[in-house]
Simulated scan of single mutants.
Amino acid sequence: MSRLTYRSLNWILAVAALLGMGFALLFLQRFMGFAPCSLCVFQRVGLIVMGCFALIAALVNPKAIWARLLLWAGSFAGIVWSVGVAARHIWLQHLPADQVPSCGPGLDYWLNTLPLQQVLHEVLSGSGECATVDWRFLGLSIPEQALIFFSILLILHIILLWKIFKFR
């Protein structure tokens, strides 16, 4: 673990975000033909946020602890968001059929007609499309696989925080 420097951990996070997005866009969307539901889109947003902050940290490699903490906080916020949305998605998928929320209009409609706060509320409430399990790998749905992936990235953030304070 001594070779895992602040910079190398951020490169790992940035590459992981790129790989995760590549998997989602190229494999799941293009190859498998799955259109992402609104919760899937929100998980991707968190992954992109994490990846952008990690990439900036890897490229700049700031020496000031406040700069490192600021970049870490942005990256951490993105992955915590993804973990939370994935957990919510899994919860919806495990609801009994009679408790699954009905399908509503799509995310595009909500973004065009509702204030952002209401869009967030509607998306996180979930809909019938989010409760559908289209594909499983090793017995895990896509959100379950995503939660495992995001949890690993969350652990890397904890290691990264330790590195930041060890740097002092």
Rank of each mutant, 00 (worst) to 15 (best):
R44Q: 09
R44C: 05
L4N: 13
L111Q: 10
W11D: 05
W91A: 07
G74F: 07
H121R: 14
L147V: 10
L25F: 12
I158N: 10
I48Y: 01
L154T: 15
F31N: 11
I158D: 09
P96E: 09
F42G: 05
Q43E: 12
L111G: 00
C40L: 02
A86P: 04
A67I: 11
C37L: 03
W81H: 04
A67E: 05
L95Y: 01
L161R: 06
L120H: 08
P36K: 05
L70R: 02
Q99T: 09
A58K: 07
V49E: 04
S38G: 08
L124A: 14
F165N: 00
L28R: 08
Q118T: 08
L147T: 07
K163T: 01
L18R: 04
V83T: 07
V80I: 14
L70D: 00
G106R: 05
F31Y: 15
G33A: 14
M1R: 09
L116S: 09
G139N: 02
A87R: 10
N10Q: 07
V119E: 03
L47T: 11
I65Y: 04
L161C: 10
L28E: 15
I148C: 12
D108E: 14
I155P: 15
L18P: 01
G74V: 07
I79E: 11
S8V: 15
W110H: 12
M21R: 12
Q118V: 08
H89M: 00
I142Y: 02
E122P: 03
A146K: 02
S141G: 06
T5H: 14
F23C: 08
